[in-house]
Design a protein around this nucleic acid. Structure first.
Lengths: 137, 137
DNA sequence: TTGAAATCTCCAGAGACTAAAGGTCTGGCG
DNA sequence: CGCCAGACCTTTAGTCTCTGGAGATTTCAA
């Protein structure tokens, strides 16, 4: 049985974050000590590792809840997990595309600024005048 | 003089968002009607367009406040604006790099899942076992 | 003058934490 | 066994950028 601090050290998840995940219904300590402190077992540590890993990959809390539920049923078909991961991958790709458009626009704006004062600063002018943009955003 | 609804229609910024920007100190209506309703002039609409444009480009509210302050001084040097935009561009690029790493990892995980049940689902296994990851994240 | 639409202020929620306040428990040392 | 520092407890609030709702008031056209 580990205290919350030990679990934190083992998983790299901060103590308040562990409590937050509990509040979000992602995990519950196996026990409580007589003085009401959380006590975790090996399984809990593994579960938290799973959660942390999924968060690192950018999955939302709600999706993680679903993935955890799926992982409890080894015999169920894994389409659900594939679908969740696939949808997330699509989202990540869309975000990348959007950020690339921003990057291009910002790059163009920054590199165009040859002015010395605000009056002829391309950065300021571009923001004021949408007509100076190459693309919609 | 325009009402907040008219300004919203002209700029595409929702009414509550305009009030939010006011609360954040980005803009104030030129006047109030006798019945205390906001009344905006042309300059206000331009200012809101500037704000919206900057938000679309991903600038934070605090940065926009700075950019607005700079734009009020046409004779000042524009280094400030360049620096803000440049720093933002750097951030955008970093985010793109991070998302690309996520994309690669997710792609690998999703494409590896040839299993039919959760038990041998690579998605679930990869989340459970960090050792299956290619890179740190 | 009436009444529907727009506006007002204030408050709460989303998402994923993070920090602080004020009190309680644990565990090692003398 | 008693002490006390450190870890832990709960609850609350703050971050950031909005968005929506409740209930009251104003506007404007018919």
């Amino acid at each position: 049985m580990f205290s919350i601090g030990e679990v934190s050290r083992r998983t790299g998840v901060k103590v308040p974050t562990i409590r937050y995940y509990e509040q979000m219904g992602l995990m519950t300590p196996s026990e409580r000590s007589e003085g009401n402190q959380r006590r975790y077992g090996r399984g809990d540590v593994e579960r938290l590792t799973f959660i942390r890993h999924a968060r690192d990959l950018g999955f939302e809390i709600d999706r993680i809840r679903e993935l955890l539920a799926l992982s409890q049923h080894p015999d169920a078909p894994c389409e659900g997990a594939d679908r969740i991961a696939g949808a997330h991958l699509t989202e990540v790709r869309q975000k990348i595309e959007q950020l690339k458009r921003l990057e291009a626009e910002l790059e163009r704006i920054v590199s165009h600024c040859g002015g010395h004062t605000v009056e002829d600063c391309y950065v300021i002018r571009a923001l004021s005048d949408h007509g100076l943009c190459e693309h919609e955003h």
